[in-house]
Nucleic acid binder design. Structure first.
Length: 676
RNA sequence: GCGCCCAUAGCUCAGUUGGAUAGAGCAACGGCCUUCUAAGCCGUAGGUCUGUGGUUCGAAUCCACAUGGGCGUACCA
């Protein structure tokens, strides 16, 4: 309804502009804003400034925007749903909405966040994609939480989403751990299978040892090359060890992420991209298309390369060596394909432009019964092919900013072979790293080099075993919350299992919100205190606001009071413009309702910018407004004797609570707890 | 060299794509438990938006240059 109203107002303004100034404005050129204060109205249009600019360009004389605004104002007809129109400031035209009408509409409307500008086709979101060779750390959590929140945002808006977690099971990282098992620990597959301690933690330590192993003796690096080759061949004990390690670590990762409510639909594996000849197919297509080149001279002699976007022509002879640097090698001179090459093939498959498919088998089942499928190179008895994975109308890759360069070439490569615009809708969602402060690194017990101690931040490094393990952090947070829950009288009647569950949900909302409150481009300098906070701007606060809203309704039910609402627009209008010494302030209440109604706007903004922070900040702001309302005596429902006021407050609390709960689900994946 | 990102309150960060008086949290100080749950609320204090120019009705936001940080630019992934 609000959307329709916006459109009606813009159309009116458009007509007024044409009539008064003979200027044709597109609806898209008319921007609406929310005024900074309720007294200034509900919608503001800085359109007079735009007109002044255009008039000056056309006639050369300056115009006073305020006078132009007054002129436009006088041309506007009465609009259904608009109470009054004013000009203000240097030239704003401000609209005051019919509060009763708006409130009745949003209160009675379906409480879904479906947006009308969705793509409609299947969107593929790839996130997490951790090398399956060691435990997940806090940086991986940032990736997964960002990705999962984007999945939830898109789903809430009405999109169909498929979630991928790409498994690089044949890369150097898995290889290194295999080297560790075979050549440092001299273990066989049977020995490794018999390891009973936490496997992802075991490999975390082993991986750090392998780094030292290579440093001690450069010859040891030859073992890596040899092992990598054996793994790529896919035969023999070495390949079986790699398979065991990557599968077992992968399961550990799925467990870790599931603790935060993060799940995947399908796990495409690099080994299957290789064995099913995805690359060969893509390679033939690329050669046929002519977008890649075989270098016969220069430093890339013998390689197949792709040119940078702005120079697809063969460079002239006088161009310097440095300009060649931008070319990306897809096939090495020894004939093997690079990661970028493989990724182009994989992304062609994602967008249904390769003409090949994986085989699939079930790999894992979440505690709620939802299965996760994994790709295989062989026909499986329980094949998931009919599930129709891949073939999306766009992909979104949540990958750290460090990989922007190869990601740009993946997009370029796919675009060469694209038959439609789905690649243009696709995007690499780059995000910055989570780093440690020297202080937090020391707190973890790491000895820093002199150079590192002087830095403001220290990168986490699996190779050095330096980092905060995801499960350790979640454990710590849960313990911290549990300690508080246990010492609080409010939970005295609550069972132990329930207290654990409540602690878990609070911890998850706190941790996820912590990772979402930064913009993607902001480096997070990890701080134990901040990451484990549950006061102030945190996920726990958001959850608390929802719980308070729920408890109002629980109290009303316990007291046998009705929660039926049946008010006319006139009654609502009266209450929302009333101001009394008792503390009742209609403007204030209207401000809260109107702000709560903007959740879809916030979601739209977060989706269009692929930036969950906007939704997180909005949600916190709404929770904060609700808490302020909650503390005002004039609005206590329990004590409200006047029936119309009671109904209005019931409707208001119900509406705000519902908006907050939807936001909470998207951001944290958590269902509200009973008590907090 | 080239390219990308960042610089806003003591600290950590937002700032709706150029709009009205630059906002939060933490930390500090003062007040509020006779609770629709104090994991909360209210108040006070805190700013040369890194610097210098430019664009215009208007700039934290756009442009140029400068300074200081981070990252990328592999026949690694």
């Amino acid at each position: 309804m609000l959307l329709t109203l916006h459109r009606t107002i813009k159309t009116q303004l458009q007509a007024a502009v044409k009539k008064s100034f003979e200027i044709e404005l597109a609806l898209a050129d008319i921007t609406a804003e929310y005024p900074p204060k309720t007294e200034l109205g509900d919608l503001a249009f800085p359109i007079a400034f735009e007109i002044a600019k255009r008039l000056k360009a056309a006639t050369g004389t300056k115009q006073n925007p305020r006078q132009l605004a007054d002129k436009l104002r006088s041309e506007l007809q009465a609009i259904d749903g608009v109470a009054r129109i004013e000009t203000a400031g240097a030239g704003y035209i401000n609209f005051f909405l019919d509060r009763g009408r708006v409130f009745n509409t949003v209160f009675n409307a379906e409480k879904s966040l479906k947006l009308d500008e969705i793509t409609g086709g299947k969107l593929i979101v790839e996130h997490t994609s951790i090398n399956p060779n060691k435990a997940a750390h806090i940086g991986h959590l940032r990736n997964a939480v960002l990705g999962d929140t984007i999945v939830r945002m898109l789903q809430a808006s009405g999109e169909t989403v498929e979630t991928h977690n790409y498994i690089d099971n044949t890369g150097v990282q898995v290889t290194d751990v295999v080297v560790g098992f075979k050549y440092i620990e001299n273990k066989t597959l049977t020995d490794i299978e018999a390891i009973t301690e936490r496997f992802d933690y075991y490999c975390w330590d082993l991986y750090a040892q392998v780094g030292k192993f290579y440093e001690e003796n450069p010859d040891n690096k030859k073992l890596r090359a040899q092992t990598l080759h054996e793994i790529e061949q896919g035969e023999g004990e070495t390949a079986l060890i790699a398979e065991h390690v990557s599968n077992r670590i992968l399961k550990a990762h799925l467990d870790t992420m599931w603790r935060l409510g993060i799940a995947y639909d399908v796990l495409p594996r690099e080994s299957d991209v290789l064995h099913l000849n995805f690359w060969q197919t893509a390679f033939e297509k690329l050669k046929e298309q002519g977008g890649i080149y075989f270098e016969t001279e220069g430093k890339n002699k013998g390689c197949w390369v792709m040119r940078a976007e702005d120079k697809t022509e063969t460079p002239a002879e006088d161009e310097t060596e440095s300009q060649y640097e931008a070319d990306k090698i897809l096939v090495r001179s020894n004939g093997t394909v690079t990661y970028t090459g493989k990724d182009i093939a994989y992304h062609l498959w994602k967008l249904g432009q390769l003409g090949l498919d994986f085989h699939y088998r079930p790999f894992y089942t979440y505690s709620n019964g939802k299965p996760v499928w994994i790709t295989t190179a062989k026909e499986a008895t329980e094949n998931g092919k009919d599930l129709g994975f891949g073939n999306g109308v766009a992909y979104f890759n949540v990958i750290d900013v460090g990989q922007s360069y190869p990601q740009a070439y993946v997009k370029l490569g796919v675009k060469l072979l694209s038959t439609d615009d789905r690649i243009d809708r696709s995007a690499h969602l780059a995000y910055e790293k989570v780093v440690l402060t020297p202080a937090s690194a020391k707190e973890l017990g790491y000895e820093l080099s002199e150079a590192d101690s002087k830095r403001t931040q220290v990168s986490m490094s699996g190779r050095k075993g330096l980092g905060v393990k995801a499960d350790d952090l979640i454990d710590k947070l849960e313990e911290k919350v549990f300690a508080k829950v246990n010492s609080d009288d409010r939970y005295s009647e609550v069972s132990l299992a329930e207290r654990k569950d409540i602690s878990h949900r609070i911890a998850v909302s706190a941790l996820r919100y912590f990772l979402l409150k930064y913009t993607r481009s902001s480096v997070i300098a990890f701080d134990f205190e901040e990451a484990q906070a549950f006061e102030g701007e945190t996920g726990a606060y958001l959850l608390y606001a929802v719980v308070r809203g729920n408890s109002i309704f629980r109290k009303l039910r316990e007291q046998g009071k009705s929660t039926e609402v049946n008010l006319t627009s006139e009654e609502i209008n009266n209450l929302l413009s009333l101001k009394e010494n008792s503390g009742w302030d209609g403007d204030y209440l209207w401000g809260l309702i109107y702000f709560a109604s903007r959740l879809p706007d916030s979601l739209r903004l977060s989706i269009s910018s692929l930036e969950p922070t906007h939704l997180a900040k909005y949600s916190y702001h709404l929770a904060s407004s609700f808490s302020n309302f909650y503390n005002k005596n004039a609005y206590k429902l329990i004590e409200q004797k006047d029936n119309t006021r009671y109904q209005l407050l019931v409707a208001l609390v119900g509406y705000v609570r519902c908006q907050l709960e939807q936001a909470l689900r998207i951001l944290t994946g958590v269902e509200p707890v009973e008590k907090m």
